[in-house]
Design a binder for these strands. Sequence first.
DNA 1: CCTCATCCGTAACTTTGTGTACGGTTCGAG
DNA 2: CTCGAACCGTACACAAAGTTACGGATGAGG
Lengths: 214, 214
Amino acid sequence: MTDTSREARTHQIANAAYALLEERGYGGMSMLAVAKRARASNETLYRWFGDKTGLFRALIEINARSVTERLDNAPGDDPREALAALGPILLGLLLGDRAVALNRAAAADPTGSLGAVLAEAGRATVLPRIAGLFSALAGQGACAWPPEAAAALYVDLLAGDWQVRRVTGAMARPSEEEQAARAQRALALCLSIIAEPPPLAAPLVPRDGCINKD
Amino acid sequence: MTDTSREARTHQIANAAYALLEERGYGGMSMLAVAKRARASNETLYRWFGDKTGLFRALIEINARSVTERLDNAPGDDPREALAALGPILLGLLLGDRAVALNRAAAADPTGSLGAVLAEAGRATVLPRIAGLFSALAGQGACAWPPEAAAALYVDLLAGDWQVRRVTGAMARPSEEEQAARAQRALALCLSIIAEPPPLAAPLVPRDGCINKD
DNA sequence: CCTCATCCGTAACTTTGTGTACGGTTCGAG
DNA sequence: CTCGAACCGTACACAAAGTTACGGATGAGG
């Protein structure tokens, strides 16, 4: 099996796993079920991914690359336009069934290691792209905050507690209209806030890190 | 066993369960382990709580009552002072080990029913109290937003995506100083925003609801 | 074509947890 | 004090999942 076909095969397996994950959740998805759905064998899965956690690590990383690609292809020449286009896409992805399922897997992960993968593959790749747009706004004199802080504020206003409520099942998936409206509101509020310097000298960029659960 | 002693006993069992939950996580906590820790029997647990999901429902509800009590006892006569006192307390509770563990349980719950319990027992009891404070601010002419919308915005700025990152393990628990600074910033930003009417006529109060996972 | 690594489909093994059952003890009501 | 409900400690039955193993088939390289 060549590297190219192995990569294609890996994506086939990942897609089978995503489908099962969204149907049954983390607890209802066994390695054997993935193997059957993907027409692969248990042995291949363990050989390629090491163990169940390893498979989930790969699922998170593959999904994150897909998300980043979607964001990089968002239309908009002007940073304001780019943010207006990017917001609904990002929110849709964050609240979508796949991301929710992967977040649930990380929440349920007994090894406690998937959180760091989420942090590194997900947020840590998305946020700099958003910060870049705020940096461009700063160049236009429209942003008096550090770009990273402005990006973090934007995500707070965009996602807020919607994501955790989705992940815990406390909230259904909002409609496209609701998501679009929220993204629009978040951008309007954020642009308004960052036009003036931050109100406090307190640390504005939260730390990333993760804890071992055991 | 009287109602009083049964309630006391229930809290004993709950405390044993919280301790185990925080030590081992949802997946590592069996009913038998709870029974042994609480010096109860499996049969009693199943008789009192129905099944494992029922036990978790009770744990969520008992914890929510405790949270609400803590918030109701927050100091502050003036709504502004009350919000300033309430913010760090609420954020500390949301990011604390117990709440994180319960959110993880809901995320991992195969029945998909614990999310609704979280929504009803938790957020739906906390948010009206916050909205009440914003309502009082409106009475002082300091809030041009609907109180519920102002409260939701406040929580977005207070917790933002910190909670989901804690639940997924992507982020360690912030220090008390970090939490206090964030609460302070959230209040300052929120008060600044709500002094003027909302920028959009879009729906500002997100819907609550939950989905069945299967 | 041949060879060898690896993939597939299936099976086996071990462990663990959920939920039920049971004998003895305890508690509360009459 | 007596009696019955229920609680405790322990055991049991069953199911399912994680992981490893194995014989035959497949694919890639020489």
